[in-house]
Amino acid sequence: MAAPQDGPWLDDAAGRLVRPYTVSNGRTRPTAPLDLLSLVMPTGTAPGGHMGPEHSQALGLCDAGPTSVAEIAAQLRLPAVVTKVLLSDLVDCGALTAKAPAFRHNPTDRSLLEAVLDGLRRRL
């Protein structure tokens, strides 16, 4: 039986009742260039066409401000690639805008790596 907060899509014994790739209509490649650290923000434009409940949930998670693809995937409990497909649908229809991480051109920047290390040390 599903827990009340999980809704009808999760079952304690069986797990997710809807397969992740059903959510993305079998698509495995997003149309927008997104990675796990890309930040997505709502534009205020309502999505056009038919969007599934996961699209609405993803859009709602962005209301608090710029949100990373990784964070949305974790909140939706979906694989990252499925989340990227959902988010790219929302980008394509104008409901979201996406921004690549600032270090995209130099991911081995020493100052960035030191900042990440400092953040990890503070959490541990």
Rank of each mutant, 00 (worst) to 15 (best):
M1W: 00
M1I: 10
M1A: 12
M1E: 12
A2V: 03
P4C: 13
P4I: 11
Q5A: 15
Q5T: 15
Q5V: 14
Q5N: 15
Q5Y: 14
Q5W: 15
D6Q: 02
G7V: 08
P8I: 15
W9Q: 11
W9M: 08
L10M: 13
L10T: 15
L10V: 13
D12E: 13
D12L: 11
A13L: 07
L17N: 03
L17A: 01
V18P: 07
P20Q: 05
P20Y: 03
T22F: 05
V23S: 03
V23R: 00
R27L: 08
T28P: 04
R29Y: 08
R29I: 14
P30Y: 06
P30E: 08
A32F: 10
L34S: 10
D35E: 14
L37Y: 11
V40H: 01
V40Y: 04
T43D: 03
T45S: 05
A46T: 14
P47Y: 02
P47A: 05
P47H: 05
P47I: 08
G48E: 15
G49R: 00
H50S: 07
H50W: 06
M51I: 11
M51Y: 01
M51C: 11
P53T: 12
P53H: 09
H55M: 06
S56V: 15
S56F: 05
S56Y: 04
A58W: 01
A58H: 06
L59V: 09
G60I: 00
C62S: 07
C62T: 14
C62W: 00
D63L: 05
A64L: 08
A64T: 15
A64S: 13
P66I: 11
P66Y: 13
P66M: 07
T67C: 13
S68W: 05
V69G: 04
A70I: 06
E71P: 02
A73H: 01
A73T: 12
A73D: 09
A74P: 07
Q75T: 11
L76D: 05
L76T: 02
L78I: 02
P79E: 03
P79L: 07
V82F: 00
V82T: 06
V85K: 04
L87H: 04
S88Y: 01
S88D: 10
S88Q: 05
D89L: 02
D89P: 04
L90V: 12
L90F: 09
V91P: 04
V91L: 04
C93Q: 13
C93F: 03
A95M: 06
A95D: 04
L96S: 07
L96C: 07
T97S: 08
A98C: 08
A98V: 14
K99S: 15
K99L: 13
A100V: 10
A100W: 04
A102S: 12
R104K: 15
H105R: 11
N106C: 10
P107V: 03
D109S: 03
D109Y: 01
R110T: 11
R110K: 03
S111M: 12
S111R: 12
L112G: 03
L112H: 01
L112Q: 12
L112Y: 04
L112V: 14
L113T: 06
L113S: 01
V116L: 08
V116T: 07
L117Y: 10
L117W: 02
D118M: 02
D118L: 07
D118R: 09
L120D: 04
R121L: 10
R121V: 11
R121K: 07
R122P: 01
R122A: 14
L124I: 12
